[in-house]
Computed example of a mutant assay.
Amino acid sequence: MLTKSSLTRRSLLGAAASALASVPLATAAPARPRRARAAPLQLTLPGPTGPHPLGTVAWHLVDRSRADPWQPSRPRELMVQLWYPAHRTHDHPVAPWMSPAAVPFFEREQGIPAGALLLPATHAHAAAPVDRGRRGRPVVLYSPGLRSDRSLGTVLIEELASRGYVVVAIDHTYDADLVEFPGGRVETFAVAGDIDDALIAKALAVRTADTRFVLDQLTALNAGRRRLPVTFAGACDLSRIGMVGHSLGGATAAAAIRADRRLRAGADLDGSLLPPLTAGTDRPFLLFGSDPGPGPNDPSWDRFWATQYGWKRELALTGSTHISFTDLETLMPQAAPALGLTPDRLTQAIGSLDPHRAIRAQRAYLRAFFDLHLRGLDHHLLDRPSPHCPQVRFLR
């Protein structure tokens, strides 16, 4: 049974899995009075390292076969975002990190002072034409944590897309903190009840159904039966699909790969699991956790390991925390001066590892995993510890 402490550290983490509220701002030293307001601090994301320029497009999906489990009077609605290699990007604007109508909700809920921060832009161009490659691109689905949203996975998502993948990021409506739909409608977190095994099981069932519905719609899109502002027909190689998620999204990847054989490989970024919904399969699975790893309060990874009979590896990122596997790893240090965060509070939130090294390691090992199992390209990074990434420990 998952303990409350393990859920707090891995699967849920409250608002820390969703935004800057992981640091209680009220403990920061008060700012000195100023005669004039300081200019807002512009946040940035590290650029992806792959050779491909990026495009992105949001996609509104409605599953009319399902009543929404969290809001039963409505059909199940999702927002997903596709990220992909693109060409002719110069005449397409750069996409924002967070959808515009969601920004005021984000700032208000996270206690960010008005005008203190300018949220970053991405490195992707809105609705730029798709570069399909020779025979379609391999696909990776991304699922965020509970009370999180797809924006917080952008650093890893852009890296995979720049390396030739189509990445499909899913917002799981109502267990996400914020989801903006067409017309500026914003739906917020609406999961009622105690965070226990029963609620997590329900959330995993909802998310697994979401994932399978997205796979169905992606199949129709790739066949030309669905329309977007960009043409995606033939852009995806649907024989090569993987999934990665952070926190509860990592458990979602494990549950979805068990439920749907279209998923060929999966990765869990520091998320508690919930056997038997997340028991192992014959397909490859990567466990990549924070330091010091699952620990005695979270036996779920041990249970998964015992049932996983396909390829498997467990890694730990030394000096990291749960939210190191989100964009907050790079955004919080930038925001610290504007928010009055002390070095100790920052270390408590994101760990002691240098953020650039943390992001570089995550990108390298996630790419190596999907290259190996979706492309047949072996970088040998997953064979043994690397002197180039000593911060990554091989646990088994």
Rank of each mutant, 00 (worst) to 15 (best):
T211H: 08
I195A: 14
A126Q: 15
F181W: 08
L119R: 10
F213T: 10
A116I: 03
V168Q: 00
V186W: 07
R147V: 06
A127W: 11
L141I: 13
E159G: 07
V155K: 11
D171Y: 06
P120R: 11
R185N: 05
R185T: 12
A220W: 02
R163E: 14
A116T: 02
D216P: 07
T122S: 15
D210Q: 03
L160A: 00
R134Y: 06
L199Q: 14
A190K: 10
V130W: 01
F213C: 09
L215N: 10
A114I: 04
D149C: 13
T219K: 09
A209N: 08
T188H: 04
S151G: 14
R227T: 15
E180Q: 13
V179I: 07
I157F: 04
V140F: 10
R137K: 12
P229V: 12
V166G: 04
D194R: 14
V155A: 15
D131H: 14
Y142K: 06
D175L: 06
L141S: 07
E158Y: 11
V140R: 05
L156D: 10
R227C: 09
A201K: 12
L118V: 15
V155H: 12
A161H: 07
T154P: 03
R132Q: 08
F189C: 05
R185A: 14
S151W: 06
A161Q: 09
I195N: 10
H172N: 04
T122P: 13
R132Y: 07
A192D: 13
V140H: 06
R226V: 05
R150I: 10
D149I: 01
H125D: 06
V206T: 15
E159P: 03
R132F: 04
L199P: 03
R135F: 03
A176D: 01
A124G: 11
P120T: 11
G115Y: 00
R134T: 15
L156A: 12
T154Y: 04
D131G: 05
L228A: 11
V186P: 06
